[in-house]
Computed example of a mutant assay.
Amino acid sequence: MTVDLPVLEQTAAPRAASARWSRYARPALGLVLPVACALGWELVVDLGYSNGRLVPPPSKVFETIVELGKSGELTRHILATLWRVGAGFALGVIAGTILGAISGYWSFARRLLDPTVQAMRAIPSLAWVPLFVLWLGIFETSKIVLIAVGVFFPIYLGVMGAILSVDRKIVEVGRVFRLSGPAMIRRILLPAVLPAYVVALRVGLGLGWMFVVAAELIGASEGLGYLLLDGQQLGKPAQILAAIVIFAILGKLTDWLIEAAAAPLLRWQDAFGARGGV
């Protein structure tokens, strides 16, 4: 049985076009809701149903962002916040990964460490602020450590839970093939843990962005959290909303970076979500 090549080419062309359209249409679909809400509120204010004083319209918020950008203030605040989140995220990921892996792989360590970690996880973020100020001062170290604390817990739980949930049958297969300890970790545990680890990284990053606001209440003179507080004290709702919008954009961009970096490592997955779901 032979298949005409022109027929195959005609079938492949629409599929390629559809794939290209899907590649750009799916990310654009995520903009529909925020853009629709922004246009709706702009219309409500324009029609006079609200004066827009306490909740300024998007045009006013955009104007505030442009003004802050022209003055150079916005760049300074964004860089300060990015540095704090990046440093705190790195410290939290290192500590959470190491302790989570030890607790997940070694039952004695889990029984020793996990009760204390779970108790500390229940402590509100703001409760750490006065303690870190006393211990580390009001400068950058206390802010970075506070963010690292927020990042640590989801990473620790994600890594430990992922290791504990590895299918026992897969481990037994590794033992049948007489894999050494390092080989077992590299060929069995790491691939099994990686999907959950990526999710834990994304959750930890989100908490890092949340904790940076609390961190920048510790004597900060720059940063997006400081911009929020300054807008509240001076009665500038447009500045507050501008800072919130920038937080949302930066948070989404950094989350996308983790997704993009992890995608090549997760191509082996044949999961429902890996093919776009329904």
Rank of each mutant, 00 (worst) to 15 (best):
M1R: 13
D4L: 13
T11G: 14
P14C: 11
R20E: 11
R20P: 08
W21T: 09
Y24S: 13
R26M: 11
A28Q: 07
L31E: 04
A38R: 12
W41T: 06
W41K: 07
E42D: 15
L43T: 12
L43Y: 13
V45N: 08
G48C: 14
S50M: 08
R53C: 09
L54F: 14
P56S: 04
P58K: 10
P58R: 08
F62I: 12
T64I: 13
E67N: 05
G69M: 15
G72N: 03
E73S: 03
A80E: 09
W83D: 11
A87M: 14
G88D: 11
G88R: 12
F89Y: 11
G92V: 05
V93T: 15
A95T: 06
G96N: 07
T97S: 15
T97Q: 07
I98Q: 09
I102L: 15
Y105E: 05
Y105S: 02
S107W: 09
R110V: 04
R111C: 02
L113M: 10
T116V: 04
V117E: 02
V117K: 03
V117S: 02
A119T: 02
A122S: 11
P124C: 09
S125F: 10
L126K: 02
A127H: 05
W128A: 03
L131Y: 04
V133I: 11
L134C: 01
G137L: 08
F139A: 10
I144N: 04
L146F: 01
L146C: 05
I147G: 09
I147V: 14
I147P: 08
V151P: 06
F152G: 09
F153Q: 06
I155E: 12
L157T: 06
M160Y: 00
G161Y: 00
G161P: 01
I163E: 00
L164Q: 12
S165A: 06
V166G: 07
V166S: 06
R168E: 09
R168W: 02
V173I: 13
V176Y: 00
R178T: 14
L179T: 04
G181N: 12
R187W: 06
L194H: 09
A196V: 00
V198Q: 00
L201F: 02
G204C: 08
L207E: 02
G208H: 11
G208S: 13
W209D: 11
W209P: 07
V213M: 13
A214M: 08
A214R: 11
E216L: 06
S221Y: 01
L224Y: 08
G225T: 02
Y226D: 03
L227V: 04
L228F: 12
L228D: 07
L234T: 13
G235F: 03
G235I: 08
K236A: 10
P237A: 00
P237T: 06
A238T: 01
Q239I: 04
A243L: 12
I244Q: 09
V245K: 14
I246K: 10
K252G: 15
T254C: 05
T254G: 02
T254F: 02
W256P: 03
L257M: 15
L257N: 01
I258M: 00
A260N: 13
A260T: 07
L265M: 05
L265A: 07
L266M: 12
W268N: 10
Q269K: 11
Q269D: 05
D270P: 05
D270T: 15
D270G: 09
A271G: 13
A274W: 14
R275K: 13
R275D: 08
